[in-house]
């Protein structure tokens, strides 16, 4: 493991991609930054621009309007980067699966853009913050 990878593991900057979520997952994500969980202990901070990000945190389903924006955001992210699909909607569509405005799942869109993308699924509706921390640990061991 090189110095770069070691530094990357200690400092994950997250950009939050909200693909039309219902806000339930987003509230659970905010919990991660509050004193009870405080993920800045591990160097995880939210940033405002995909170009600064090492991880994309995707919530919600990718409908027709969101799909081109999602692809553009993935292209704008500096590589190497990790994609977290947070919540049942982002993972496998939840109740929106088969709906007329959801032609493809988020992971299919990202795989089409970059076949080697690292994708981490965090299922739940909404997932608990502990589930997200567990997902981060698994993603870091995959890097």
């Amino acid at each position: 493991m090189g110095l770069k990878t070691a530094a990357l593991k200690k400092s994950i900057w997250v950009f939050h991609v909200a693909c039309s979520p219902c806000n339930n997952c987003d509230i659970e994500i905010l919990d991660l930054l509050t004193p009870r969980f405080d993920v800045e202990r591990f160097g995880i901070v939210l940033v405002g621009s995909p170009r600064h990000a090492d991880a994309l945190l995707i919530t919600g389903v990718a409908n027709r309007h969101v799909t081109p924006r999602l692809i553009e955001t993935y292209r704008a992210t500096a590589k190497p980067c990790v994609c977290f699909l947070y919540g049942a909607c982002a993972c496998k569509g939840n109740v929106f699966k088969g709906s007329y405005n959801v032609p493809r799942m988020v992971d299919e869109i990202i795989r089409e853009e970059d076949p080697n993308a690292i994708i981490v699924y965090v299922p739940g509706c909404p997932p608990k913050p502990e589930a997200m921390i567990s997902g981060v640990v698994k993603a870091l061991s995959a890097l």
């Binding site: 530094a7 990357l8 090492d54 500096a78």
Partner: peptide
């Protein structure tokens, strides 16, 4: 760690 990581990343 932050600066070291940024030095190793892609410049877009």
């Amino acid at each position: 760690a932050d600066v070291m990581k940024l030095m190793g990343k892609e410049v877009i």
